[in-house]
Design a protein around this nucleic acid. Structure first.
Length: 586
RNA sequence: GCGCUUGUAGCUCAGCUGGAUAGAGCAUCGGCCUUCUAAGCCGAGGGUCGCAGGUUCGAGUCCUGCCAAGCGUGCCA
């Protein structure tokens, strides 16, 4: 409906251009919006006001010319010029009923489109370090990222979901060392656990696993471990120097092979846990991309080589720097440290080079908002590699602050004090958790009250939408119980009996679904979908309370059943996109 | 200090490329169940859109300054 009207208006503009009223070279952006107030019709355009100045006409005069240039169409009943120059369109109400037929015909495909035209988009999200279980902070990125990916798929993009596994950094060494120390405890060594080690119970669990399999094979006297290690922070020293000393000691005392074994057990264990966790949360990936792999196959070296050849690298203070500031970064960045090790940024350059080489039309990275300062340097790298910085779109997800009622929950991965995503799922359920996370704009800081989310009795908006779906199902059950039979065809023939205000409002809400979906996808704003579903549910609940569907008049009854079935279909389509269940009863 | 983000009802948030009277949920108050599920519906109150300028037919939306909050500003990841 909207598209059709847009093309009619476009034709009117073309006519005026031909007549010389509007200059040919003016770019015309057809702006049609749905009217909030029905007195202004169904759609309104501000076109005349926008074009008034370049056309050197006053808006109302121009509006009149536009209206008279508008091709005849049976769908348009009336066109008004109002206020300072709005053009208001009143559509034929009979055409509104088509939406019910359309929804019935397209079923679960209703709302999907091909605006993406099969373009390849990569969406990388979560990518949490595999140093511990996912916590509720990651949950938001997981929910948001997966819905963004699914929305893009729904409007015709070819989407590749990817998790970047940071399995090569210092944090992983800290994890491996933490596991080894817990293992030594298990062996009976008098271990003093470092301030900076990973303290979560899962570390001890993994250590016990290691002990079960290896017995005393990796046991070394703790005195020997501590030998020559600088003091820890709580002993008046430096915690970083202390943990680095322990890592080096673990490597030398265990030897490369055994150290690697402990390391690998930790990585495999945690990564497997993360995979299962995400799967249970309704988040699936096409690819788990290993940072270590980039190191091993020489991609990091290759990436730096490419930068070097292009003249973007230089040596200073014993380190290798990438000249990112000419590309708009605040300062240049180190890619290889004085000690010869690559920085995290170096492998990230390699990773993005790899993404570019894979030929995606667009690359979307979803990061925690605390990494926003990182964007300019990655974009700089992309440009330095000879690509367009706009290929990369970084979407930021603000962390959720967790509350238990009034009390703020403090979290730190290292200290082991955090609420895991799994705990949240157990308490709230997948549906409510996903709905909550995606309900707000991603870059908006959000308060996540566990008490509120766990309360199943009220306030939880997900139930409101699911309830609408369940209610339609209930109506269909009642239909049978009352001895009626649904007659689809006669219902479709009788759609023009749907003249109640609530019915018309429901029809226009249904009609908005495809354009809403397209916008939500292209702007990467899943909350638009949530908002829409709440509106649709509200329109339905209101209708339900105002009118009986299972009336004696068979044709009216069938028409109403067809309408509420269309509502059920659209609710199901939206909820399914969000990976939220559509209960038949509640 | 500099950079990014945010500031809308008591609370949590929407507000589409600038459009007509700024919306919703929760909370508060008042109504609606012998009827297809009351996890619902209807109504009421509640606003200096952080502050001050500017741009224009028109600004919550764009620009500038200021105020406040968060984050960033490593040879950490």
């Amino acid at each position: 409906m909207r598209k059709k009207l847009e093309s009619l208006v476009q034709q009117a503009v073309a006519t005026l251009k031909k007549e010389g009223v509007i200059a040919d070279d003016i770019h015309v952006n057809i702006a049609l919006e749905r009217c909030r107030d029905p007195q202004f019709g169904d759609f309104a355009s501000n076109l005349a006001m926008v074009l008034a100045k370049p056309a050197k006409l006053n808006p109302r005069q121009l509006a009149e010319k536009l209206v008279s240039a508008l091709p005849e169409d049976s769908a348009i009943v009336k066109v008004d010029i109002a206020g300072p120059g709005f053009i208001n369109f009143f559509m034929d109400q009979r055409s509104q009923f088509d939406i019910v037929r359309q929804i019935h015909a397209q079923g679960s495909d209703f709302g999907r489109s091909q605006v993406g035209a099969g373009k390849k988009i990569q969406v990388e999200f979560v990518s949490a370090n595999p140093t511990g279980p996912l916590h509720v902070g990651h949950g938001r990125g997981a929910a948001y990222g997966s819905v963004v990916a699914d929305l893009l798929t729904a409007v015709g993009f070819s989407v590749h979901r990817e998790y970047y596994v940071n399995d090569a950094g210092r944090q992983m060494d800290i994890l491996a060392t933490s596991i080894w120390l817990r293992y030594l405890e298990e062996c009976g060594e008098p271990v003093r656990f470092p301030d900076n080690g990973y303290r979560g119970d899962y570390v001890s669990d993994i250590a016990r696993d290691v002990y079960r399999n290896a017995k005393d094979d990796y046991r070394r006297p703790f005195d020997l471990v501590l030998e020559g290690i600088p003091e820890d922070e709580s002993q008046g020293g430096d915690k970083e120097a202390h943990i680095d000393g322990l890592i080096n000691k673990a490597k030398t005392l265990l030897g490369t092979t055994d150290y690697r074994k402990v390391f690998q057990v930790g990585l495999n264990n945690i990564l497997e846990d993360i995979k299962q966790d995400l799967q249970g949360f309704g988040v699936d990936y096409q690819e788990w991309f290993s940072e270590q792999h980039l190191m091993d196959d020489g991609s990091v070296e290759l990436a730096l080589k490419r930068l070097q050849v292009a003249g973007h690298l230089y040596e200073k203070d014993g380190a290798t720097w990438f000249a990112s500031s000419p590309f708009g970064d605040e300062k240049d960045r180190v890619v290889r440290r004085e000690n010869g090790q690559y920085t995290y940024f170096a492998s990230d350059i390699a990773y993005h080079m790899n993404k570019l080489d894979r030929g995606f039309d667009q690359i979307i990275d979803i990061w925690g908002a605390d990494h926003h300062g990182y964007i300019p340097r990655v974009k700089a790298a992309i440009q330095a590699l000879g690509a367009d910085a706009d290929k990369l779109k970084v979407l930021l997800v603000q962390f959720a602050t967790l509350y238990r009622g009034e009390e703020k929950v403090q979290m730190s991965t290292r200290s082991g004090e955090f609420v895991t995503l799994r705990q949240l799922r157990d308490e709230v359920g997948k549906d409510a958790a996903r709905f909550f996370y995606v309900m707000r704009r991603s870059e908006q800081h959000m308060d996540f009250d566990l008490h509120l989310a766990t309360s199943k009795t009220n306030e939880n908006p997900v139930f409101y939408v699911q309830y609408a779906h369940a209610r339609v199902c209930s109506v269909l059950r009642q239909l049978v119980e009352k001895g009626f039979t649904r007659d689809l065809v006669s219902g479709m023939d009788a759609l023009d009996k749907l003249t109640e205000e609530h019915e018309l409002s429901l029809l226009s809400t249904l009609e908005r679904y495809p354009e809403m979906l397209e916008r939500a996808a292209l702007t990467h704003e899943p909350h638009q979908l949530i908002l829409y579903l709440r509106e649709l549910a509200n329109a339905f609940h209101t209708y339900y309370n105002a009118h009986q569907f299972l009336v004696e008049d068979a044709s009216l009854r069938n028409a109403r059943i067809n309408l509420v079935c269309a509502v059920k279909q659209v609710l199901a389509n939206g909820l399914t996109l969000l990976n939220i269940n559509t209960p038949e009863s509640m």
